[in-house]
Design a protein around this nucleic acid. Structure first.
Lengths: 217, 217
DNA sequence: CAGCCAAGTAACTGCAAAGTTACTGGAATG
DNA sequence: CATTCCAGTAACTTTGCAGTTACTTGGCTG
């Protein structure tokens, strides 16, 4: 607000923006690891190397902070959505690799599902809108015959998300089936190969077979 | 143990077996709804219409109780695995409908994933064994040519589980994509139809196309 | 430099929830 | 019928954690 704040990053100078930032990223780590009920406000404060009081000062309470963390992550994901590869066969792999690099997001979605699954959820309206845009795009491609019209777009998209995300959301099942931890590069390689092959095989079933998959949330 | 216990089910007679049973089913409901950290021991006791002390008497502490609940559910699921339909094209649908009827199981798996995902998990060895039996069976069918050998069995199984389970594990995403709550029969109908169609289409890619999917873990 | 506001802190409060103590009463056994 | 053992209870203690109070410090503004 007032000038002369951010241009001094010295040892322990006051810096509200940085503090908020630190709180949010500490909260992201804590919430994605422990969930809302399991997360500890003190732990977030410690992680952010900040006094707990500041956290309440900036965010009001634990739940507001949680919602804010979700909100930020959602908009962050939104910006990532743009860089999907042109070639539809690589999309599954692309989304899988994106998911691998952002386990926190998957975990947040999982916590969200468990806590608020059947009830309205943070930013639901705008997320729905984003999803609809993607669905519309798939339907266009279906109309053009680029993507099979055999299945409803929603079911297709849901399935793409499932194939790319499920193993990461259930690491224990993946480990029991494959013997690898999902963080093991070997597992990621194998899954990526499978998705590649799968997209190819599936595209093969259609004359002009192509797949789309554009954004999550 | 001693005779003359269970043959009297009168109003409030002592009945340790029944009490344990009630605790376990109350705990299943509470843990699957709220997770480990979110569950309240008092709530479990109230639900089971039993004194909290008995819960500690029989199970030691909250975590032991949680593990016991998981253990029981796992063995219950194991017995369900036998009744899969002969026709492989119906298997996806069968497993999907089974999952719909047992949301608690999916939620428990989800809580488990979040709390202990990368570390060893309850009954891991025996669950792994069960999984391996299924994988072995898929590989046999692959050797016979009944199931495509294009993909590793583990990846196939993981994908089948994903397609059937994912929408139920992430109800908020399903709602944002389809507009239906997952508990809505209309959604279940549509997903089942999709899975049916999908299995048919996919089987079509192979000369002798068939799929298998036998049990979860 | 006086005065003020916002950033920052430590120590506290209150409550909720896990786990315990110390007891009552029922029924099988000799 | 007395002893013993276990199911069952209410009320308590302890702990851990969300949220607060009351204070200090840094720095800009007139």
């Amino acid at each position: 607000m007032a000038p002369g704040y951010d241009n001094r990053t010295s040892h322990a100078a006051r810096n509200p923006e940085l503090s908020k930032e630190r709180i949010l990223s500490a909260a992201l780590a804590e919430f994605s690891a422990k969930g809302f009920a399991g997360a500890r406000v003190d732990a977030i404060a410690r992680r952010a190397r900040i006094n707990k009081r500041m956290l309440y000062h900036y965010f009001g309470d634990k739940e507001v902070l949680f919602r804010e963390v979700l909100r930020r992550k959602i908009s962050e994901r939104r910006t990532w959505g743009v860089s999907a590869p042109e070639n539809p066969r690589d999309r599954l792999v692309f989304w899988f690799e994106l998911a691998c690099r952002d386990r926190e997001w998957i975990q947040l979605l999982e916590w969200e599902a468990l806590q608020w699954g059947e009830t309205a959820v943070v930013e639901e309206a705008s997320r729905k809108e984003a999803a609809n845009a993607v669905l519309e795009r798939i339907r266009e491609l279906q109309a053009k015959g680029t993507v099979t019209s055999r299945f409803p777009a929603e079911q297709l998209l849901l399935s793409m998300m499932a194939l790319t995300t499920y193993p990461l959301a259930f690491p224990q099942l993946t480990r029991m089936l494959t013997g690898y931890n999902v963080s093991d590069p070997e597992f990621q390689k194998q899954r990526a190969e499978f998705l590649q092959e799968f997209a190819a095989a599936f595209a093969g079933t259609e004359k002009n077979g192509r797949e789309v998959h554009d954004s999550d949330c």
